[in-house]
Design a protein around this nucleic acid. Structure first.
Lengths: 111, 111
DNA sequence: TCCATAGTTCGAATATAATCGAACTAATTC
DNA sequence: GAATTAGTTCGATTATATTCGAACTATGGA
């Protein structure tokens, strides 16, 4: 394998993107890339075996959420923010905002 | 069964919502309810057997996307728009906008 | 009370997805 | 060119979802 195939923005499907983001591990990868881009697969793998990681990155690539470039021996991943925005404006931002929302503790009722 | 249980907004999960919306049939139900609320299950069923429909409505209920009220012999469904907005502001709107986007024909390149 | 309607529940079958070890590949370094 | 690194691919296993028929429940009406 030299490089990866990535779908064109017009081939992104909403179902594919929502399915990709519905998995907590994959969502966490997207969130981490949002903080720091690009990153290789290894620092994102959270103790899982390489074959599982590879599978999740494939799902993310096929959905259009990220691009993987082979750079020497490492495979660098970055979010396709512009392509996502062109195809489905505001979608990724809304999901990421929701992920942050979910992470916040539930507000305490006023005493 | 008298009435259904519905999760409280603070128990909505992003994964549950994305998973619910990642299915084309369930997304179509949400979109139809967006056009016209409330509706019973039957007019939304698109030729599928009742047991399948019932399953999809259960997934939608558990995710928090819709509420089902037993009214006489029919079960009326409506979107929990306020609850969704309170829990994950802008999320449903972004997904619905993306669904509309996806439905539009690809723009033709300028000759 | 009997029947029709609307939808649920059960159970089984099928399909799709996730997980992971083992063998593999491509690029880098020594 | 051998060893190392980073990640893929294969194949099997398990888990999760979907599908659907059949039997069931609750309500409303004749």
């Amino acid at each position: 394998m030299k490089q990866y195939d990535h779908p064109a923005p017009e081939d992104f499907t909403l179902a594919g993107i929502l399915h990709a983001l519905a998995d907590p591990f994959r969502l966490s990868v997207v969130r981490k890339l949002m903080q720091h881009q690009p990153q290789a697969c290894t620092p994102l793998q959270g103790g899982r075996p390489k074959s599982s990681i590879s599978h999740h990155f494939m799902v993310l690539r096929k959905s259009g959420l990220l691009r993987t470039e082979v750079v020497g021996v490492t495979h660098m991943n970055s979010l396709r923010l512009q392509d996502m925005e062109a195809r489905f404006p505001g979608l990724l931002a809304a999901v990421l905002a929701a992920a942050e929302q979910e992470e916040m503790p539930a507000p305490q009722p006023v005493a």
